[in-house]
């Protein structure tokens, strides 16, 4: 069963910081703290809502309600995102990770629901949220392989061996890429080295 993270320590520190700012900081410093806190509060709200959607999907999955789980995650990816701050040119990485992860889970659920094309679209969308070497990109490549595996099986069942073979070859390629990306993630994590995969499938 998937467990949600505890946000209490972080929230506690935020509250302490706010209290510290309010009581002791000069006005200008307080403004800095307040803005930073507001930005993070918006982000925390978004992440909390996303986590709730994952919980909802967990419950649906536990009830073998795959369409219900899909619906919960569709709501997640459609949620309004916190607007980027004036000083940030790119979306918050946390949001991008949430979306990449949700798309990967959606794709897996759609495979279970025999919606291979929908799963393929989710993988493609997810990869746009994880363009660089990361666990999320590697995981999406892994799911891409699963999608092509399912596609190959469908072709085989339909008596289309050539198409099945091609889909299987794509699956192997995606799995290889997933292995390479995760290898790079491990290397970077443990050694501080960064590698890049050969590109999206």
């Amino acid at each position: 069963m998937r467990r949600p993270p505890s946000t209490l320590p972080a929230l506690g520190l935020l509250l302490l910081a706010v209290a510290s700012c309010a009581k002791r900081a000069p006005v200008a410093t307080r403004a800095v703290c307040e803005e930073a806190t507001v930005v993070d509060t918006n982000l925390l709200s978004y992440l909390s809502a996303a986590r709730a959607r994952h919980h909802e999907a967990n419950v649906r999955e536990d009830d073998d309600d795959v369409p219900g789980a899909i619906a919960a995650l569709e709501k997640l990816v459609a949620m309004p995102r916190p607007s980027a701050s004036a000083t940030a040119s790119a979306p918050a990485p946390e949001i991008e990770e949430v979306l990449a992860d949700a798309r990967a889970r959606l794709a897996e659920l759609r495979v279970r629901a025999n919606d291979v094309e929908g799963a393929s679209r989710d993988v493609a969308e997810g990869l746009t949220h994880a363009p660089d070497t990361s666990y999320f990109r590697g995981h999406l490549l892994e799911v891409a392989g699963v999608v092509d595996e399912a596609r190959a099986a469908a072709y085989a069942d339909a008596g289309k061996p050539n198409e099945a073979r091609a889909a299987r070859a794509r699956a192997v390629t995606s799995f290889q890429q997933a292995v390479s990306v995760q290898e790079a993630v491990i290397a970077r994590t443990l050694d501080g080295r960064v590698r890049r995969d050969g590109g999206a499938p």
């Binding site: 998937r2 946000t7 910081a17 930073a36 925390l44 992440l47 946390e94």
Partner: peptide, 21 residues
């Protein structure tokens, strides 16, 4: 999503310390 919670916590913690400092 839950991975990002680690980063989220780091960010929150860092903000907290930054403000406190």
């Amino acid at each position: 999503m839950k991975v990002s919670s680690g980063r989220r916590q780091r960010r929150a913690i860092a903000v907290g310390f930054g403000c406190a400092v």
